[in-house]
């Protein structure tokens, strides 16, 4: 198109393209600006939060004892000790949870994709949706009411794991279900046509095909429950020293340690709070990273 200096210079013929009215252009521009601003707006708290945690937590996690010691015998105002007892607690509680939730979740997804028909399947789908919306404090209360009040067991890391199962289960079911549905029916048919029974078709053909996606989903689910605080507040006592026994006694975890040190008015307490927060984020990121790596490298080899 030619650029024109004034209306007079314009050719008398109508332009080749119909012009867009100014109002429409303005609206379009306005929408573009708003939408972009919305995205940038979300980056503000994210950046602010991450920078805060890293800046405040860096000193603590680089102390020599942070990763190898507990807080046993460390005074509230003493900059010393570490959080390995809490890291152990967070990891072991999540892993015990995964040991229960992953098989049940995978079997539920198998039911929904491979077997489920009619009313029961609809009910299960609905309940998985509902379970994914159950607040963590309600899950914790339920386990308290069931395991501690009704059955009379003491508070323990195991009880925490049970509550986490309720929170992890829907995540595992969802991601596994999605992966199983991606497996083309042609593969199942090919297997049946070879005279392979249904269960073996699922175990040897369908699951391996969906495996990397399922592992990714499980890793993300573990990362998610690791940061849960409500269950540890309700279901296990805090300990300043290491406890390896998930079935008995108090056990620290990173969220629980943060909650306790928040009540410590000393500067050392602040230091530990931010250090533990950074440690927790790093731990969660580690599992996210593993998930990303798994999905990248073990995706179905095509060449």
């Amino acid at each position: 198109m030619t650029t024109t200096d004034s209306l007079v210079d314009r050719p008398a013929t109508s332009p080749a393209f119909q012009p867009i009215s100014g109002g429409r252009k303005t609206k379009n521009l306005f929408a573009t600006v708003l939408v972009t601003l919305a995205f940038l707006l979300a980056l503000v708290p994210l950046g602010w939060l991450l920078v805060t945690v890293v800046v405040n937590g860096f000193e603590a996690i680089t102390t020599s004892t942070w990763w190898s010691h507990s807080l046993k015998g460390v005074m509230p105002d003493e900059v010393n000790g570490g959080v390995y007892h809490a890291i152990y607690g967070s990891v072991i509680q999540s892993l015990i949870c995964a040991i229960i939730a992953v098989p049940v979740g995978i079997f539920t997804a198998i039911y929904l994709v491979e077997y489920g028909r009619g009313k029961l399947a609809k009910t299960v789908t609905f309940m998985v949706d509902i379970l994914s919306g159950v607040p963590s404090i309600v899950a914790a209360l339920f386990i308290f009411a069931l395991w501690i009040t009704a059955f009379g067991f003491p508070k323990s890391a195991l009880a925490v794991s049970f509550a986490l199962v309720l929170l992890m289960l829907p995540v595992v079911v969802r991601s596994t279900e999605e992966m199983l549905r991606l497996v083309p029916d042609q593969l199942r048919e090919a297997s049946y046509a070879l005279g392979v029974p249904k269960w073996k078709t699922i175990v040897r053909v369908v699951l391996p095909t969906a495996m990397s996606g399922m592992v990714t989903g499980v890793m993300l689910a573990i990362a998610r429950v690791m940061g849960e605080t409500a269950p540890v507040l309700v279901l296990v006592g805090y300990s300043r020293s290491i406890n390896f026994d998930a079935f008995d006694g108090n056990m620290a975890s990173l969220p629980l340690l943060i909650m306790n040190e928040l009540m410590n008015p000393e500067a050392a307490g602040q230091l530990r709070v931010w250090g533990a927060a950074l440690t927790l984020i790093l731990l969660v990121m580690l599992f996210n990273l593993v998930a990303a790596l798994v999905s990248r490298f073990s995706a179905v080899r095509s060449k």
């Binding site: 940061g227 849960e228 943060i258 909650m259 928040l262 931010w274 927060a277 984020i281 969660v284």
Partner: peptide
């Protein structure tokens, strides 16, 4: 992915 306790802090 940020744990809620960190948001709280």
């Amino acid at each position: 992915a940020v744990p809620s306790i960190v948001y709280g802090l």
